[in-house]
């Protein structure tokens, strides 16, 4: 017996006895048929939901990868541009960081490094922003 939270007394026993004699109410004979009819007509919505979710994931993945690739390309080839905007401190800090990363990973093919980084970022984005958006807008 699961009832541990409320002490057993005569009233409790009486109620238990009475409730044990309950007969569940019977809905209409075509209850299941009606439910299945509604469910059947909505079945594509259920499948569509899954597909929509997959499509959004794919689009987001592609966009994230493209953004990260662009960012890294910019950092490697156009870092001097930062000077134009007078951001010399940022330039030196950024360049220093990129130099460290590149010198650390110089033996690893750059593509593998970029993919690893992209996956890491994507994982964080997926676990936070994307999940939030999915639950909020029921995508």
């Amino acid at each position: 017996m699961k009832h541990h939270n409320i002490h057993t007394n005569e009233d409790d026993e009486l109620l238990r006895d009475l409730f044990s004699s309950i007969e569940l109410e019977e809905p209409s004979a075509d209850f299941t048929k009606k439910v299945m009819h509604t469910v059947g007509s909505q079945a594509p919505v259920f499948e569509l939901k899954k597909e929509t979710k997959l499509n959004y994931t794919t689009i987001y993945f592609a966009l994230s990868c493209a953004s990260i690739l662009l960012l890294l390309w910019f950092a490697q080839s156009n870092i001097e541009l930062l000077d134009i905007y007078g951001m010399s401190t940022l330039h030196s800090t950024f360049k220093y960081s990129i130099d460290i990363i590149m010198s650390t990973f110089h033996k690893i093919p750059s593509l593998a490094f970029i993919i690893t980084l992209a996956c890491g970022l994507l994982y964080i984005i997926d676990k936070t922003i994307f999940r939030f958006a999915l639950s909020k807008y029921e995508l």
Binding site: P27, F31, M36
Partner: peptide, 18 residues
């Protein structure tokens, strides 16, 4: 397999209705 849902409906319909 949408039709499998009818087994769940049949099982719980009386309790649900009560």
């Amino acid at each position: 397999k949408v039709e499998a849902y009818s087994a769940l409906v049949d099982k719980y319909k009386r309790m649900a209705y009560t």
